[in-house]
């Protein structure tokens, strides 16, 4: 019984993590670049660009019209010889940092990047202090 349940859970996790993302891919075959290397670059950039209509999805997986337009724009810029940084700058100049799913590290985003580490250090400090106190009580 447990074995069957475990295998069902395993199959479910496998489908969710491996199969469904490929099903939801929204890139149309006519959008593909002929050069596989350039196409890979386009896909990599698209995966880091937020779909502003659906917001919690990248343009790579979104079927929204704006997402498609941005995918085409990225591919056209790649074909014209733009670098990845130039494409990101073009998009953030027009839509702000919000368009990046993984924002770059700069003064305005420093709190976003550093706070998790500050919280982690704070957590370790609290655990350390509590541990010290409990040791004292035991003694």
């Amino acid at each position: 019984m447990t074995k069957t349940l475990l295998s069902i859970i395993f199959i479910f996790i496998f489908i969710v993590t491996h199969i469904s993302p490929t099903i939801t891919k929204a890139v149309d075959p006519d959008e593909f670049l002929q050069d596989p290397k350039l196409e890979l670059r386009a896909r990599k950039i698209s995966k880091n660009i937020r779909c502003l209509v659906c917001q919690n999805q990248s343009i790579d997986g979104s079927s929204a019209t704006l997402a498609k337009d941005l995918r085409i724009l990225i591919r056209n810029k790649i074909k014209k010889g733009y670098t990845n940084d130039e494409i990101y700058t073009f998009l953030t100049d027009r839509y702000g940092d919000f368009i990046l799913l993984k924002p770059s590290f700069k003064l305005s985003t420093s709190a976003l990047w550093s706070l998790p580490f500050i919280f982690l250090i704070f957590g370790i400090f609290v655990i350390f202090q509590l541990n010290k106190k409990s040791k004292k009580i035991i003694k």
Binding site: L52, L66, D69, L73, Y95
Partner: peptide, 13 residues
Amino acid sequence: SNALIGIDWGVYG
């Protein structure tokens, strides 16, 4: 027609 002006102005809706 191809949304290029829209994108240039940061239009999303």
